Simulated scan of single mutants.
Amino acid sequence: MNDEPLPDCAPANTPADASGRPPVSCRMCGRTLTGRASRRTGLGPACDAKLHPDRPDIRPRRHEVEQEPLF
């Protein structure tokens, strides 16, 4: 077999941060991502909110209606 060491996952020209992981940039704005979930999805929190806005509140609204009392 070949005795050469296995290459790292990161490209050689990519500097690693303090934790030793290669930097990951947001796919929309290009900022460096630091959070675990952001690094996994490739989107920062602000860009993720732009692509996936909160669902509208579609619960029925209650309102008072004037009616004769029930006996």
Score class of each variant (00 low, 15 high):
Met1Ala: 14
Met1Trp: 04
Met1Ile: 08
Met1Gly: 15
Asn2Glu: 14
Glu4Lys: 12
Glu4Pro: 00
Pro5Cys: 03
Leu6Val: 11
Leu6His: 05
Leu6Pro: 02
Pro7Glu: 05
Pro7Gly: 02
Pro7Asp: 06
Pro7Lys: 04
Asp8Leu: 15
Cys9His: 10
Cys9Asn: 10
Cys9Gly: 15
Ala10Tyr: 06
Pro11Ile: 01
Pro11Val: 03
Pro11Glu: 08
Pro11Phe: 05
Pro11Arg: 12
Pro11Asn: 08
Ala12Gln: 10
Ala12Asn: 04
Ala12Ser: 14
Ala12Val: 14
Thr14Val: 15
Thr14Gln: 14
Thr14Pro: 00
Pro15Arg: 08
Ala16Val: 15
Asp17Thr: 11
Ala18Arg: 10
Ser19Phe: 12
Ser19Asp: 15
Ser19Ala: 15
Ser19Pro: 01
Gly20Lys: 01
Arg21Phe: 12
Pro22Ile: 05
Pro22Tyr: 09
Pro22His: 10
Pro22Trp: 12
Pro23Leu: 04
Pro23Tyr: 02
Val24Trp: 00
Val24Phe: 01
Val24Pro: 00
Val24Gln: 02
Ser25Glu: 06
Cys26Trp: 02
Cys26Thr: 08
Met28Gly: 04
Met28Cys: 09
Cys29Lys: 03
Cys29Tyr: 03
Gly30Cys: 07
Gly30Asn: 09
Arg31Val: 15
Arg31Gly: 10
Arg31Ser: 15
Arg31Leu: 07
Thr32Met: 05
Thr32Leu: 02
Thr32Gln: 11
Thr32Asn: 03
Leu33Thr: 06
Thr34Tyr: 07
Arg36Pro: 10
Arg36Ser: 13
Ala37Asn: 05
Ala37Gln: 07
Ala37Val: 13
Ser38Pro: 00
Ser38Asp: 13
Ser38Asn: 10
Arg39Asn: 03
Arg40Met: 12
Arg40Phe: 11
Thr41Phe: 06
Thr41His: 07
Thr41Ala: 11
Gly42Val: 11
Gly42Arg: 01
Gly42Asn: 03
Leu43Pro: 00
Leu43Ser: 02
Leu43Gly: 01
Gly44Asp: 07
Gly44Pro: 00
Pro45Thr: 10
Pro45His: 05
Cys47Asp: 11
Asp48Gly: 12
Asp48Glu: 11
Ala49Pro: 00
Ala49Ser: 14
Ala49Lys: 01
Ala49Leu: 09
Lys50Ser: 13
Lys50Phe: 09
Lys50Gly: 13
Leu51Glu: 09
His52Glu: 01
Pro53Lys: 03
Pro53Val: 06
Pro53His: 04
Arg55Gly: 13
Asp57Gly: 03
Ile58Phe: 04
Ile58Arg: 11
Arg59Glu: 06
Arg59Gln: 11
Arg59Asp: 14
Pro60Ser: 02
Pro60Thr: 13
Arg61His: 07
Arg61Pro: 04
Arg61Ile: 15
Arg62Ile: 13
Arg62Ser: 08
Arg62Phe: 13
Arg62Met: 13
Glu64Trp: 15
Glu64Gly: 11
Val65Gln: 14
Val65Pro: 03
Val65Trp: 02
Val65Met: 05
Glu66Gly: 09
Glu66Val: 08
Glu66His: 00
Glu66Asp: 09
Gln67Ala: 13
Gln67Ile: 01
Gln67Asp: 11
Gln67Cys: 05
Gln67Tyr: 01
Gln67Ser: 10
Glu68Lys: 05
Glu68Tyr: 04
Glu68Val: 09
Glu68His: 05
Pro69Glu: 07
Pro69Arg: 01
Leu70Asp: 13
Leu70Pro: 06
Leu70Tyr: 04
